[in-house]
Nucleic acid binder design. Structure first.
Lengths: 263, 263
DNA sequence: AAGTGGTCTAGACCACGCA
DNA sequence: GCGTGGTCTAGACCACTTA
């Protein structure tokens, strides 16, 4: 026999899945559920509801009730059209534009000097005593944060340059790095999926049960030395990452058994 | 004044972050914390601990205590070397090979006929009455599940073909589709980040606080008709998605302001 | 004022792992 | 047998929203 709180969660989850509790809809109150399941200790009912909260399915609103989380406001936009040219990785195309909506983009930029975290240090191949500069950006659409974008570079490289100005750099910070003799020619991308830290919850105004993707881009100069590490953090409930691939005929010859797509 | 349960969570979280509670280390017991914070209702202490559980930082082990979650057993393997050739999207390279480990791969395959979910139906451009075949694979390394890989295709296309055999198809299912007149030439990739469903928790043996990435690959034939939808679900704690990009000189001309990497 | 969820109290019995 | 976390009881006071 399953515990009561799990039965509560299972029943409600199913009602959400089959649409009898639609997005935005109101769930029974704790008191309703207490009665319905004959349990009547609030904690048992709350335990069941908290499961759904942590799955990101419902949100409690103080003094109002529990509500089914609204569908993600995402319209994914496939990349243009079939291309002969090789697959462009069009990752983190931000797809928040609901048809016809005009949303005002804005960003905060903040630059500071810090000790490198392990993540950054290992990718930039720094000694533990080296300092790094960090360019922190919080990007918003209509005030809603949708992306944290923190770039790290060795302080010795960017000190005194425009890279450290906490303002928009019209020609791009990568151009600034090129002028410093470090043109970026290669990038290594890593994507992690995890729950957010409390700081990320605050900066991105995340609801409960919302995981994030952490996209770490390490960029290299022509001599293969790492120049910059950029850490993007995007909320799982506000993004879909989309890109398109075209089959490379060479690829087919080189790896005849490749199960492209299914693999 | 912050609630007690939040102070408990904050204090422990900090100790985990600064290493005084190392991965695999044992946390104070509920009774210890009850005493330390002078609260002494178990529920308060448990509420604090459950925050950390849902953040994926700790795991409770029945009758033993709470433990800091072990580091992800990931060794990320950067793609070979600098390439003149355009960026290959080497996504979902499964990087579970800790140096020197030999891990035995295995998979279950199960084929059935179902009604198409909304996700599948819209991508395959099916009518709601159309049936689809699904080829479900659970992939394991040393018995540990690390990937769910479910492929969907219109039943009318694959019925009676080798695609529907619940066994390994040596030449690849994509080759089977090609022989059916549907060579796959293009793919659209979407990646979502979310909490797992209970079924996914079961199939992937996920711990609490573990989000998943859902990688949806829609593949198209030369006439631009969608042929197959593959849904990969990978646990956030057992994967890192890695790929490499090389700067395309054309790209630089076409989009001079592109902030490649930082963007 | 009534109803909601947020926090907390002070217990209870159970299943499980270990010495 | 003892200590651990898992589940549950039966309340309390609070902050906040809505009527």
């Amino acid at each position: 026999m399953k515990p009561i709180y799990q039965r509560i969660a299972d029943d409600l989850r199913e009602q959400i899945a089959d649409g009898s509790l639609p997005p935005g809809g109101k769930l029974p109150t704790e008191a309703d559920l207490r009665e319905k399941y004959g349990t009547s200790a609030r904690s048992t009912v709350r335990q069941g509801l908290s499961l759904l909260v942590n799955e990101g399915l419902i949100v409690p609103r103080r003094a109002k009730g529990y509500f089914v989380r609204e569908m993600r406001p995402l319209v994914y936009r496939p990349q243009s059209k079939f291309r002969r040219r090789p697959p462009e990785v069009d990752i983190y195309t931000h797809l928040l534009v609901s048809e016809g909506d005009e949303r005002r983009p804005s960003q905060d930029i903040e630059v500071s000097i810090v000790e490198a975290s392990t993540t950054v240090r290992s990718r930039l191949q720094l000694k533990s005593t080296d300092l790094v500069a960090v360019r922190r950006r919080t990007r918003r659409l209509d005030g809603e944060a949708y992306n944290l974008n923190d770039s790290y570079a060795a302080l010795s490289l960017v000190e005194g340059s425009e890279w450290m100005m906490p303002t928009d750099v019209a020609r791009g910070t990568n151009q600034v790095l090129a002028e410093l003799g470090k043109e970026l020619v290669r990038a290594l991308d890593e994507i992690y999926v995890r729950m957010p830290t409390p700081e990320e919850v605050r900066r991105l105004q995340l609801g409960p049960g919302t995981p994030v993707a952490e996209h770490v881009v390490t960029t290299f100069a022509a001599d293969d030395s790492p120049v910059q590490v950029t850490i993007n953090v995007v909320p799982g409930d506000r993004h879909v990452i989309v890109y398109e691939r075209v089959k490379d005929p060479d690829d087919f010859e080189q790896r005849p058994r490749s199960n492209w797509g299914a693999e």
